[in-house]
Design a protein around this nucleic acid. Sequence first.
DNA 1: GTCTATAATAGGATAGAC
DNA 2: GTCTATCCTATTATAGAC
Lengths: 185, 185
Amino acid sequence: MPAPLITKAEVLARLMATFRSDGYDGASLAELSQRTGLGKSSLYHYFPGGKAEMATAVLGHLEQVLREAFSTALSCKTPEAKLARLLEGLDAFYAGGKSACILERLVASVDRARFKKPMLRAFEGYVGTFLEIGRAAGLRESVAKARAESAVVRIEGALVLVAATGDAGVFARTLSEIRSSFLAK
Amino acid sequence: MPAPLITKAEVLARLMATFRSDGYDGASLAELSQRTGLGKSSLYHYFPGGKAEMATAVLGHLEQVLREAFSTALSCKTPEAKLARLLEGLDAFYAGGKSACILERLVASVDRARFKKPMLRAFEGYVGTFLEIGRAAGLRESVAKARAESAVVRIEGALVLVAATGDAGVFARTLSEIRSSFLAK
DNA sequence: GTCTATAATAGGATAGAC
DNA sequence: GTCTATCCTATTATAGAC
């Protein structure tokens, strides 16, 4: 990347934003070029594998972003604080439900097989973070596992409903429900 | 449609299957032609508006299919039986979680704005069916509403996780959870 | 109504100058 | 590294015969 103009992280963030709004199949090179501010040739310079490589790079970047957000949450003292911090982070990341999940967008693509491994990793990390909070709260392992999976299921589902109905309330209610029930004994 | 060769309903079912597996943006006319067994020109004969019109016709067809499935479920005597029948129908429709939701696939498309109204209708009917079962069971209106919304949210979310992980267990657990908790007093 | 053929365009990707 | 220009293929869509 040109040192001062735009960082690699910023390029990846913009690519991610484009995939999130347009989907993987729906995001054209023209659009990706325009929204990064890089010409097609520049994009191919950084991502010789084209769109698929851009998407996998975005997944790698996502993993870093999430790891930071997750470790910030997990560094809080009480399980309640960990959970609250995590949900705040997710609320911000999904813009209150208005921004789609990049994972869902890649899962839904025709080329989904290409992203299988990194997506599996990402979802495991995602569920795993909730799982750790449940464990820290002293929940039975089986309960913690079920609730962690359910939390991610609900978040992903809420995003679909918000996209369909335009009502962000579903997302807020979903996070609120998780907040109040996840740690219940 | 040619009277005996293939019914309109069958064409719509095949179009739906294609959109469900490939997504709206990912489904090409060539693929739609191949999987319906109709040439491109035949498709344009029935759907002059092209892919977008095929998708809206599929949504109309879906509404009919769901109405039937939903009214079958609602015709059962007890709320428990209604719920069980509905969940069985959904389990079959989603092939145990292995088949994506057509609504989600259209929501995720670049042309999503075109399908906004019929999708809103479809989701309202979807949530509304759970809502009616909750009411029939004598749940408080606010509780019935929250649980109905949550049920659809979880189903949609579970489909995303199954697609990402390949583990249909998430879908089974989600339906099971709904079955055992939806009617609780 | 369906087919073959083809037009028109958009999309992904590359070449080569700077 | 970035740009302009371009190539090639896939895609949408249409024409016209049967």
